[in-house]
């Protein structure tokens, strides 16, 4: 698929390298000594109790949160105060939010073409073509001329995914993409995400959807109190959890 072409065969070196990451909100030590290396096309699900720092961790990858200690290197570029680096990384990293964060004053199509036109400097006609392609892929091309407020939650989240894909990112971050959805709409969003995972996209997904994790994840990371407590393949993680905290967490949500 389109995304996979960006990474030449055999080039499966790390796309994200996080070492010794520490972050505080005021006095609160929210991320503690995080080390994480993500390979190209790897699909990682991050889970853990609320307040464990999982959202903050993925928000550090596109610098929606600033970290105080450690290094974050994305696709060979280190995140520092250098604004050029930050912009360069944000262009390559797509993000899907819990609350969708679609732009309510723009149509679905305009939501999708905004960044390609203004950030990638793509001609409008081409941007619209690309947008329609992705709207078709998330199965809502017929809603292109509507405004976000006229769509259901599930449709809005699918638009948000399409909007991110229009920037042709190398990495997609999902911050609890189904947590704000009514139960009957979770499935349609997860289907789109499974489809995306099968196309070879590098994905980091913060979610409580353990079925999704079991189906697509290469690795599951369990976080608690700002640290990575356990990480393993889904099989091992669910059937043979090592730490007591993981066992407790699994017993609560499964």
């Amino acid at each position: 698929m389109a995304e996979a072409e960006a990474a030449p065969e055999g080039d499966l070196g790390p796309i994200i390298e996080i070492t010794g990451l520490n972050k505080w909100f005021g006095q609160f030590h929210v991320l503690r000594d995080i080390d994480l290396t993500v390979a190209r096309r790897e699909r990682i699900v991050i889970c853990g109790p609320s307040g464990s720092g999982k959202s903050t961790l993925i928000r550090c990858i596109n610098r929606l949160e600033e970290h105080q200690e450690g290094t974050v290197v994305v696709d060979g570029v280190e995140l520092t105060h250098n604004l050029k680096n930050i912009d360069a990384i944000r262009r390559e990293v797509g993000m899907v939010f819990q609350q969708f964060n679609l732009f309510p004053h723009l149509t679905v199509l305009e939501n999708c073409t905004l960044a390609p036109i203004w950030v990638r400097k793509m001609p409008k006609a081409e941007a619209q073509e690309v947008a329609m392609e992705y709207l078709e892929r998330v199965k809502i091309p017929e809603q292109a001329m509507k405004y976000p407020g006229q769509l259901s939650g599930g449709q809005q989240q699918r638009v948000a995914i399409a909007r991110s894909l229009c920037m042709k990112p190398n990495i997609m971050l999902f911050d609890e993409p189904t947590s704000a959805l009514d139960p009957e709409m979770i499935k349609e969003v997860l289907e789109v995400m499974v489809d995306l995972a099968e196309s070879g996209m590098t994905m980091l997904v913060v979610t409580h959807e353990m079925g999704f994790a079991a189906q697509v994840a290469d690795r599951i990371i369990f976080m608690d109190e700002g640290q990575i407590v356990e990480q393993n393949t889904p099989d091992e993680f669910f059937n043979n959890p090592q730490s007591d905290r993981t066992k407790l967490f699994l017993s609560q949500i499964l």
Partner: peptide, 11 residues
């Protein structure tokens, strides 16, 4: 979230 969505897209 509106500010963040803009930032995340590189605007």
């Amino acid at each position: 979230g509106q500010y963040e969505a803009g930032q995340a897209m590189g605007l």
